[in-house]
Design a protein around this nucleic acid. Structure first.
Lengths: 224, 224
DNA sequence: GTACATTTCAAACACTTGTTTAAATTTATG
DNA sequence: CATAAATTTAAACAAGTGTTTGAAATGTAC
């Protein structure tokens, strides 16, 4: 019985596609239930509210991704010597691509959802991820810190958020950008290609030399 | 008569603040007209529609910014030798800060609007800017190309959009990020501070060494 | 098969949205 | 002042939103 696929899953599958494509706010429950071929009330019956549906859609990926990332982070943290930045960043690639096992196109959809989440419902997703997976992400920050020991913590904070912005925006605009690249450079780009292009950009940005404030001379190096 | 300020301007001022803070989609005309202390119908009477109001809000800044940017680009293009990347990027700073003359906090508000515009109404703003100011921005691309002659055009395309993402996301999240930085590093950050932190990051990212596509699994060092 | 719990369904609800209308008011013009 | 144009106003409109309801249908256990 293909038809008797769990209603919850039919909703999740329809919702994630529409959310990724149109954003959370601009996707109505009627669009979702109509694509999923279930009754409108099913969302509220099975998930409680639209907000909880959004969280369920994200959690399906976040749960497996964060578990895998945690493993990778622990592995790198166990190393004797600090890992170089490129290696630390590259650690995201495999766990991200493995999301294709959760769902066809899982990687692309999850990253688009991430983009939508940070743009659409400003603040909510940041809180949600930090609340549920802050401990995992702290390990990542530590790894970056070890690989760039000369970088002040506050500078690192900004640069990691710059990087988050790069990723989130690129993924939210993924479709549009891929179209342009196709038209202008007849270049076929899949999600893996974009990730591979992102890494060197991010690594270079994070490790960039710190800007010397052109203030009226700070005290020239306070003796160590 | 302070009270008899042009209704159009009262609307524009109220709209830009609310748009910057809450986004375009999540700001209703009733919120705007109530903050501006004008009648609800005034928006449609003076601007035609909400969409045209959004464009008017953006145009107020885009017009003066693009004019100034065009001047700067022409100045750099006239130089004998190619300009280095940092110099090319730094050219944005003054014109952006001059938006504070258009309106108090003009720089911050415009950049937030830009962030909202690219996130909220996916595609529209990209088209709008490209349509109206494509000629100006082409000069910028040319300048970057001259300063990074070794960078393939397609790679440059992606990296410039990565950079756009960094800027847009940072500005849309500006408030949240500044709060965190304040709490975690007791660091007071204004919009100019953020811009100064962005520049080295972007310059390094754009000029990063091109990634040498490593085939599936490293064939254990081929030759050399 | 009866009884019970789970799930589906159509309909309605309460609310918000952008936009339009037509009358009232203000402003400018001859 | 009187006339016409421009602006403001309150009210209504049509369409869309997420959510709730209570009865029908389905599934499960005894």
């Amino acid at each position: 019985m293909v038809a008797k696929q769990n209603t919850q899953q039919k909703i999740l599958d329809a919702a994630q596609s529409l959310f990724a494509e149109t954003g959370f706010n601009d996707t109505s429950l009627r669009q979702i239930t109509s694509l999923a071929e279930v009754n409108l009330a099913a969302v509220n019956y099975h998930f409680g509210s639209k907000k909880e549906l959004i969280q369920a859609v994200l959690q399906r990926y976040l749960r497996v991704l964060m578990l895998r990332l945690d493993q990778e982070f622990n592995r790198l943290l166990a190393a004797q010597h600090p890992n170089n930045l490129t290696k630390v960043l590259a650690v995201f690639v495999k766990p991200l691509l493995e999301l294709n096992l959760v769902n066809p196109n899982g990687t692309r959809i999850f990253l688009q959802l991430l983009g939508r989440g940070y743009s659409d419902v400003q603040g909510h997703l940041r809180w949600f991820i930090n609340h549920h997976y802050g401990r995992v992400l702290d390990k990542f920050v530590l790894l970056v810190q070890q690989s760039c020991p000369e970088l002040p913590a506050s500078e690192l904070f900004w640069r990691l958020h710059f990087s988050l912005g790069t990723i989130v925006f690129t993924m939210a605009s993924n479709e549009a950008l891929a179209e342009i690249a196709q038209a202008d450079f007849s270049e076929e780009v899949d999600i893996e290609g974009v990730i591979q292009r992102l890494l060197p950009y991010l690594a270079a940005g994070i490790a960039a030399p710190v800007f010397i404030s052109l203030q009226p001379q700070q005290q020239l190096r306070s003796g160590t």
